[in-house]
Amino acid sequence: MARPLIGITTSDDKSQLSWFFDWFAVWRQGGQPLRLSPSRSFPVRLDGLIIGGGDDIHASLYGGDVVPDVRLDPARDRLELALLQQFIPRNCPVLGICRGAQMINVFFGGTLYGDIYISHEGLIPRRTVLPRKYVGICSGSRLRRILGVTWCRVNSLHHQAVQETGRGIAVVARDRHGLVQAIESLDHQFILGVQWHPEWLVWNRPQQRLIRALIRASSS
């Protein structure tokens, strides 16, 4: 049986180590990873799509205020919006990771906090690939059924976050500060975004179930 083709968006300058974790997460669960970045040709066919982590989304796309001294990648913004525009109407399964969850929300008309450490006073900056943050998963959600847990401990590498949800988007996980940690579409079979990086949690069974769920949805 052929492996489903899973596109994974990245920046042009993403490190080989980070790409390896993306590649391995998909390959391990039975998918065929395909790197997508602004300088690479646009795919005609995909069975599934991962909008990956990376630089900030430009504030002009969601009506926010520009935060100084952050890295932006407008070409990647355009690529990801074009991919979502092309493949969502085809019922292509989509998983958003960190920036990717935010981009899904923006695509459906939602907004973001440009910097949670400015909008939420008292937050302690936390940037680590290790699972140090506790997240509660909403009952009755697709994410809860996939992970099979009521809460999980995840990593944290972001300073943007979902603020107002877009059309048909539901919040399905929050951290202890009430910040959105996962979203999913109520109108599509598989459009889901998580604020953490499951590809780095290679020994965490619930997080591997998330990648596996995307591959299985892409195989049907």
Rank of each mutant, 00 (worst) to 15 (best):
F107R: 14
N155G: 03
A101T: 07
L147D: 02
V129Q: 08
Q163I: 07
G140N: 03
R153F: 12
G140R: 02
L157K: 12
S139M: 07
L130G: 14
G114D: 07
N91H: 07
G114Q: 07
I137R: 01
G166P: 00
C92V: 08
A161N: 04
V154C: 14
G100Q: 13
I97V: 13
G166W: 07
G110I: 01
V94R: 05
P125S: 15
V171E: 12
G136Y: 14
E121P: 02
R126W: 09
R90E: 05
Y113C: 15
L143T: 01
V129F: 06
P125D: 13
K133I: 07
G114I: 01
R99V: 01
C152F: 06
P131I: 08
V149M: 06
P131D: 09
Y117P: 00
H120R: 13
Y113R: 11
H158A: 08
G136W: 10
V149G: 09
R132G: 02
R145C: 05
C138Q: 14
L147N: 02
R99S: 01
I169T: 13
I124A: 06
R127F: 10
T165M: 02
S156F: 09
I104N: 10
V171F: 09
S119W: 07
Q160M: 01
R144E: 06
I169K: 09
I116S: 15
C92Q: 15
G110M: 01
I137N: 00
G136L: 15
E121V: 14
I124C: 04
G168W: 15
T165I: 04
N105K: 12
R167N: 08
N155Y: 12
V149C: 04
K133S: 13
Q102D: 01
C152W: 11
N91M: 03
G96F: 01
L130N: 14
N105L: 13
I137P: 00
A101E: 14
N91A: 11
Y117L: 03
I169G: 10
D115S: 02
R167D: 06
R145A: 10
N105W: 14
A170R: 05
V94W: 04
E164V: 12
C98I: 04
L123S: 13
L130R: 10
R132S: 11
L112R: 08
R99N: 11
H158Y: 09
Y117G: 02
V154E: 08
V154K: 13
I124N: 07
I88Y: 04
R167G: 12
G100N: 12
R142E: 00
D115I: 01
L157A: 10
Q102C: 02
C152E: 07
G140S: 00
D115W: 08
H159G: 15
G100V: 09
H120S: 01
Q102M: 01
I118M: 05
V94G: 00
